[in-house]
Design a protein around this nucleic acid. Structure first.
Lengths: 213, 213
DNA sequence: TGTTTAAAAGTGGCCAGACCACTTTTATCT
DNA sequence: AGATAAAAGTGGTCTGGCCACTTTTAAACA
């Protein structure tokens, strides 16, 4: 009848029951869950089965465990689903070009969103980049892009971006060259003024120089 | 030194090692993995730890286990993240919105790429959609979007899209309404003619109607 | 020889108990 | 009251066992 009760595998059933337990007892993020031994007894299953369920949720970042301390419900932003997936998806993805292009898809969209949003494009953080560029003459490329993605406000997009950016490695995580400095300034300034098209053009130009490195 | 060796928890280490093993031995989707007992011996850990890792991957749908048969590498489209996500994470409205927006980011980029590429926008497949719309009067929304993503040619973007599209479930996987029919036709026609801006406008309009369902 | 059938081996599912390392609580002493 | 040490609680891991199910192997049969 009930899908949750006729579950074949105990550990999957436990995952479900844990979910109910969290809901029923109104366990909030950061709060403690019953111990493995207690859960084992309460649910009438072996401790190893409880552990299989808990470890599954831990891999997803849904719970946190502290050795000797206990098991705690994790806060939403710590979920690792994207990380886990990317681990397996990026692995068999042969084309680095696809990774690069996909990363850029998210960056371009972020630039569009910011350019079109008054409250975002007028943030003081963009000015701080200008200051940094003038004083130090250079800036970390990855930092600029990261700030753009973060500001755009899509948390999922951010997570995806982090994975993809990590894949590219040092090509982004470096200081900008003299040539890039001008392009970045153009891009940021256009973005600030809400000139979406110009900002994207500068971005494309930037990525071309990056690519030729 | 090595992040993978200084891993605190054995089961997380095993997840990593399983990933390497799959890569090294070139295990394809549907093929069998070593048995739990063999893995236990080969990795020099207890069988229960191996099981914690395997059960974690099973919850994600990355592997399939058959009682008495063995453990098999699952095909990409069987990942269950969707179910898990909706179960634990998608409670909050903001997350759902992020999933939708991120999916649309990939769709919009695909439309741009196709619109700007002669060889892609002139493909006969778009005409076949028109024919289908005329004859049957409707078409599966998801099929249209999928074809667009596929045609754009970024395999990684495609994989990401598949995952995201799965969340939305029935909102996309259905036949188009009479209202949508016109919008889709406009979008496809604009794309065929290389009118990027118009195609995107139609797309945005489409998504608005979808959203209001 | 080829087919069917039964036994054996292989494999996942689950549990009980043990020991260790670490953390939290409690009780004790100063 | 505060510091300290003992005890209890908790996760981390391993071993070994038993069951149920599947696959392989071997034997019996036609």
């Amino acid at each position: 009848m009930d899908k949750k009760t006729e579950q074949k595998k105990v550990f999957l059933d436990i995952v479900q029951q844990l979910r109910q337990l969290i809901k029923m007892e109104e366990i909030q993020a950061g709060e403690k869950l019953p111990s493995e031994r207690v859960l084992s007894e309460r649910l009438g299953v072996g401790r190893s089965s409880v552990r299989e369920a808990l470890r599954s949720l831990e891999l997803l970042g849904l719970i946190e465990t502290r050795h000797g301390g206990g098991t705690f419900l994790a806060s939403t932003h710590k979920h690792q689903l994207v990380e886990i997936l990317s681990m397996f998806i990026l692995e068999d993805e042969k084309s680095k070009k696809d990774v690069e292009l996909t990363r850029q898809i998210h960056e371009k969209e972020a630039i569009r969103v910011i350019s079109c949003t008054e409250t975002l494009r007028t943030l003081p953080v963009w000015d701080s980049f200008f200051v940094k560029l003038e004083i130090e003459g250079t800036i970390n490329c990855r930092d600029v892009l990261r700030e753009i993605i973060i500001t755009a406000g899509n948390r999922l997009s951010l997570k995806v971006w982090f994975q993809l950016a990590a894949y590219d490695g040092d090509r982004l995580n470096r200081n900008s060259t003299e040539e890039e400095k001008i392009i970045i300034q153009t891009m940021l300034k256009s973005m600030q003024l809400g000139y979406e098209k110009e900002a994207l053009q500068a971005y494309e130009q930037w990525m071309k120089t990056v690519q030729s490195m």
